[in-house]
Computed example of a mutant assay.
Amino acid sequence: MRITVLGSAAGGGFPQWNCNCRNCAGVRSGSLRAKARTQSSIFVQPGNGSDGGVDGLLINASPDILTQIQRNPALQPARGLRDTAIAGVVLIDGQIDHATGLFMLRERTSPLPLWCTDPVHEDLSTGNPVLRVLQHYCGTARERIPLDGRAFSSPAVPDLLLRAMPLSSKAAPYSPHREAQVPGDNIGLSITDRASGRSVFYAPGLGEIDERVFDAMSTADAVMVDGTFWTDDEMTSLGISGKTARSIGHLPQSGPGGMIEWLSRLPARTRKLLIHINNTNPILDEDSPQRAALAAAGIDVCEDSQVITP
């Protein structure tokens, strides 16, 4: 299995267009050793994907998708006058930074294969009616993601087997479930390559880890999980927001019960990566003590265009 990290930042990207926090100002001026990042999304292909022309699945459609396609030739193999290696899209939630990139794929000549849960389909048909708008263009061929652990796959990419798990996080602000979560607002995905048996657990929005989530993480060869905030009070301490990390559905890395503590319990063989990193998170500074703490714990920070082979 070949995973291309198309985007590794949280909503707004890095630097965020209107932010002058230490990180954003530093990366713009070049005074901070950090890499700019687009909004989070991954592209998964079976096998090693190195031969070119291998179709795969786009997991989340970022608003930055056009830039991400241009930067990653694997998504545009140019086998014909009109071509794409994106055989379908799988959404883990209905958030703007994960779903509005669907608009940019509207020039398809056939309906876009799309997997999402019922609550996400509702959000993207009502509160933010992306799917209704797309009906005026290519349209979508929507498939329901089962939440009972049953495996599903794309007929166009049968060698990738996916299983979804409802997570504790937050629905989009325009969702009727924002303050009353229902199963399927946010999911984690276990993705397995049938041929090699290698697997990854992907959960860029993760507010809480319980036993069943940890079991899924423990059985994966790699985990790519929520790296949004370093501390629970990250945005409140900067005066950016009155909300904590946990209150908007993100488990911070540091502190008791934080992501670092959970990841340290995984088997030594598990590759551990953080994705969906907010522009305020000090781990973006490659010389920060927080980044050093991650390195000491064997935890990597995803970068755009990084290729991962679990």
Rank of each mutant, 00 (worst) to 15 (best):
I3Y: 07
T4F: 00
G7N: 02
S8N: 12
A10C: 06
G11F: 05
P15I: 05
P15R: 05
R22Q: 14
R22T: 14
N23K: 00
G26K: 05
V27E: 06
R28I: 12
S29F: 07
S29A: 15
F43W: 10
V54P: 00
I59L: 09
N60S: 10
S62H: 11
Q68D: 13
R71Q: 15
A74N: 07
L75T: 10
L81T: 14
D83Q: 07
G94Q: 09
D97G: 12
D97P: 11
F103Q: 06
E107Y: 08
P111A: 00
P113C: 03
L114M: 05
D118Y: 02
D118T: 13
D118S: 11
V120E: 02
H121F: 12
D123G: 14
S125M: 09
L131H: 00
R132Y: 01
V133F: 12
Q135E: 10
H136I: 12
Y137G: 07
Y137Q: 10
C138L: 06
T140G: 02
R144P: 02
I145D: 05
P146M: 08
F152L: 00
S153D: 03
D159N: 08
L162R: 01
L162W: 12
Y174F: 14
P176D: 03
H177R: 15
A180M: 09
V182I: 15
L189M: 11
S190Y: 02
S190Q: 14
D193S: 01
S199A: 11
A203S: 15
P204K: 14
G205C: 15
M217G: 05
T219G: 15
A222I: 11
A222F: 03
M224C: 08
M224G: 03
T228P: 08
W230I: 02
T231M: 00
D233F: 08
T236C: 11
R246Q: 12
L251P: 02
M259H: 08
M259C: 03
P267Q: 01
P267L: 05
A268P: 07
T270C: 08
T270S: 04
K272C: 04
L274D: 03
I277L: 01
T280I: 14
T280W: 01
E286R: 13
E286I: 02
R291F: 05
A292G: 13
A293V: 04
A295K: 06
A296D: 13
D300N: 02
E303W: 01
E303D: 13
V307P: 01
I308P: 07
P310G: 06
